[in-house]
Amino acid sequence: MAAKKPTKKPNVSAEELKAYYRDMLLIRRFEEKAGQLYGMGLIGGFCHLYIGQEAVVVGLEAAAEEGDKRITSYRDHGHMLACGMDPNGVMAELTGREGGYSKGKGGSMHMFSKEKHFYGGHGIVAAQVPLGAGLAFSDKYKDNGRVTFAYFGDGAANQGQVYEAFNMAALWKLPCIFVIENNQYAMGTSQQRSTSSAEIYERGKAFGIPGEAVDGMDVLAVKEAGEKAVAHARKDGPYILEIKTYRYRGHSMSDPAKYRTREEVQKMRDERDPIEAVRSLLLQGNHATEDDLKAIDKEIKKVVNESAEFAKDSPEPHLDELWTDIYATEVPQEA
């Protein structure tokens, strides 16, 4: 597979590059496995895979510091794996089992980890954008130097509440990075058919929020832009990253894929795959051998297979769980 050569000289070590390769591959293999378990009826309902978009979260996580927060939409598996959540717990939530992050009560679209500062997993398009601004508000209130990554898609970018959040984030200089994961399709409606702006990040100008477009198939470009955005957000308030990416699979598992051609998808896979690009960098720069990468592939396969086994073996939640976690009896302690 021929990958597009990154335009910039990587400013990372071989070890970091290998870690990005590993993290992206984990997401891809995990999602493939999730698709398989869905096909077997072990995962139900809606399931939105992240395949193709791996460089976005891996690149931005490389720019985050401990304590920074993240919140996203229902296409959330990649974000959780990238911020260090346990694949077993994520997969067991997908199968609706006791060992899942939400004890099986949230499912694919609604997962959280206080420990990893991951605030969901939200099923209503764009609701996470004001919520993310609110998380940033809490950090600003406490003056703790933390930032929040609020991820949303090109489809969500047409919801009014995004701009309500932009307005207040700019007014109050909230330490928030608004990450538009532009995968070019809002479900089945292309950006061209749904969105008046060719460059969505430019909408921030109306609010005085700086931003930029980023090549989302190049993990190093994402990381570099992420570092710039984080530095801005910590000091001067909100920043917008419009990360141009591509989703190889359907919107959800029941997507008939009639709105784009098979050739278009294949071309992206062949020419722009973010994992292949890092693989080429590693090999061409003699930072890793085929055997090194094979060892990583093998390790990832093991992790993913174990997560699937865990997710199948973990018992269904006890029926008493139906009635728990509706009301808190004490204020949850902050992680």
Partner: peptide
Amino acid sequence: HGFAGIGVGAAFG
């Protein structure tokens, strides 16, 4: 809609 969401996010935080 926006400030209710920011309020909820602040409570999460």
